[in-house]
Amino acid sequence: MNQVFCRTPFLKQLVGLAGLALSGFVLSHMLGNLYLFKSPEAYNLYGHKLMSLPGFIIIEWGLFAVFLLHIFLTIYLVIQNKKARPKGYAVSPKKKAKASLASKSMQYQGVLILFFLIWHLITLRYGSYNTVMIDGKEVRDLFGLILPIFKNPILMSFYVISILLLGTHLSHGFSSSFQSLGFYHEKYTPLIKKLGVVYAWVVTLGFLSQPLYIYFFYKA
């Protein structure tokens, strides 16, 4: 491959682009999950419809590829970044340090989110396959799968913490992607930054509402 495509700004643009695609995915995932508030049946039917979509497997594997791209390019860049400063400072910056904690700890958030993602896939996507009959159709009982998880205080807490980390990751990642992709505008860049924070809050609160509702309010 041409060397220019291995340069750090180009790799960063790929990470950003993949990140934006994943941002779209988590938003749609969160919105879809809101069917939970309608009824367990609606939630299960939504899952069934989604997985019966033509080309669902292609979309899923495409998404998987985007995740891998985002993760592996970041790992490569983080290694390069660590090598760029073999010895750190004795004192960390105080007054001028403008960098937010969210922006400085993106890679650590990423690692923790990855652990959550793997657990999430093992327990839900590839978890036990039980079915229920809804309107004469046999559909996967996804609600039955999440119910014990969200009713368990430890697992529920793990879920909540992971979502908070995801929200932090998104709050910097969303607007940072635009910067990496080279989009800067006096008027729109501050708006994108605000939009990134609003988007991160929407996704976080949306995802948090589900385990908290189940744990505190839902009675079977």
Partner: peptide, 13 residues
């Protein structure tokens, strides 16, 4: 062997 930019903004600050 400089590192990659992660848009923290510390440089500009």
């Amino acid at each position: 062997k400089f590192g990659a930019c992660t848009n923290t903004g510390a440089c500009s600050a």
